[in-house]
Computed example of a mutant assay.
Amino acid sequence: MMGEFDSIRPYADHEVPAVLARLLADPIFLGTLTRFRFPRLAGPFGWLLKPLIAHRLRQQLADVNSVGALQERIEPYIDHTVERATDGVTYSGLEQLKAGTPYLFLANHRDIVMDPAFVNYAVFHAGLPTPRIAIGDNLLQRPFVSDLMRLNKSFIVHRSLTGRREKLAAFQLLSAYINHSIRVDGQSIWIAQAEGRAKDGDDRTDSAILKMFHMSRKDETFADVLGSLNLIPVSISYEYDPCDQAKARELSIRASTGSYEKAPGEDDASIALGITGYKGRVHIHFGAPVIAGFEDAKQLASLMDQHILGGYRLFPVHYLAYSQWDERDSALQVPTAEQLFAADELAKARGEWQRRLDACPVEQRPWLIRQYATPVRNQYRIKAGLPL
């Protein structure tokens, strides 16, 4: 049966040794690893370091012959990366997840790699199996990236197709795979609520993604199909976004010229910065399963938005940005940062926020402010029962 999903599915346990061997013989992968581990020495001594790193990895991974064993082996490195680039990760709502039940996690999307990594981190540390992760093929330009992601339970979403029929066929396959994963394999899925990161801080669920889940089971009603997938709204809140300056720059250029061309290697740079850059505190909230209360994709998208935006953790910086925002909503009763946070916490946030504003060119600042202010507006509109 699994043959039909071979082009997109994650690697199975029996494929792990061969894929690891391929990676450890890939000079581009080893070069990337060398630059990551030894940024200063990689240039002059790369020829020497690459074979040493490959040898060391072969020793460390010699007995790894399943995806679970690989995750156990890399977990300490993930934890180290997470802990080094944050002031702590907290989570809430995990107690609602039951062992043995597969879920469809639908999350807001701010960072290419770290969004699913933090969800994995929370779920792994709660002793539950990690989900399979949807990743766009636009990020898999190098074969080694695709291999790495598929080793870590990622499956591929074909986004770069242009023809309508090809797109339709790809969505049909994706829909069938997600339904098969949850209902037959009993494996959870993580997918972002919309294609592409919410660069302006406005997290919204794209109803097209919800319709896609239904595509492979058209003979059943939308409500029945989506109700059977154990949909969990996930809110990921970063106190600070390492890519906020780049996002402000892109939005500013887009607003003034009407378009934005990515430079070669720009995705790679934002992936690296997203992983290693300072994030302050991070909070992940898992909502209760949304299995009823909707008839169609539009109603469900609105319901998911209420849960995801309502579960978002607002930090002092969000209120500081909101107070500076030209577009803040006078009808909303939003308290000031001073009313909500302790003086020392607020002083630290003020310093960091000012540093970010100072580093941002004046014409791009409104876009930086918007990123941090929008979640405040959205959450207080939900609290007030107002439309988003």
Rank of each mutant, 00 (worst) to 15 (best):
G3Y: 15
Y11C: 03
V16L: 05
L20Y: 01
A21K: 10
L30M: 09
R37P: 04
R37K: 15
G43V: 13
K50Q: 08
K50L: 11
P51K: 08
I53W: 08
H55P: 12
S66F: 11
E72S: 04
I78R: 00
V82Y: 00
R84G: 05
D87Y: 07
G93E: 02
K98Q: 13
L106V: 14
A107Y: 01
N108W: 04
D111C: 06
V113I: 12
P116F: 00
P116Q: 00
N120K: 04
Y121G: 00
A122S: 05
V123I: 10
G127N: 01
T130G: 03
I135M: 12
P143R: 10
S146R: 14
L151Y: 06
I156W: 05
L174S: 14
H180I: 03
R183D: 13
D185F: 06
S188G: 04
W190D: 00
Q193K: 05
A194K: 13
D200E: 12
G201Y: 03
D206T: 12
D206I: 11
A208E: 10
L210E: 00
M212P: 02
H214I: 14
K218E: 14
D219Y: 14
D224R: 15
G227S: 14
S237V: 05
Y240Q: 01
A248W: 01
R249T: 10
E250S: 04
S252L: 11
Y260S: 04
A263K: 14
P264S: 13
G265E: 04
I271T: 08
L273P: 04
I284M: 00
A288I: 03
P289C: 03
V290A: 07
I291M: 15
A297C: 11
Q299E: 14
M304K: 04
G310C: 06
F315C: 13
A321P: 06
D326F: 05
R328C: 02
S330R: 15
A331K: 14
L332V: 03
Q333E: 15
Q333I: 13
V334I: 06
V334M: 02
P335Y: 05
T336D: 10
E345M: 07
W353T: 08
R355C: 09
R365N: 10
Y372L: 07
V376G: 02
Q379E: 01
Q379V: 04
I382T: 13
G385Y: 06
G385Q: 03
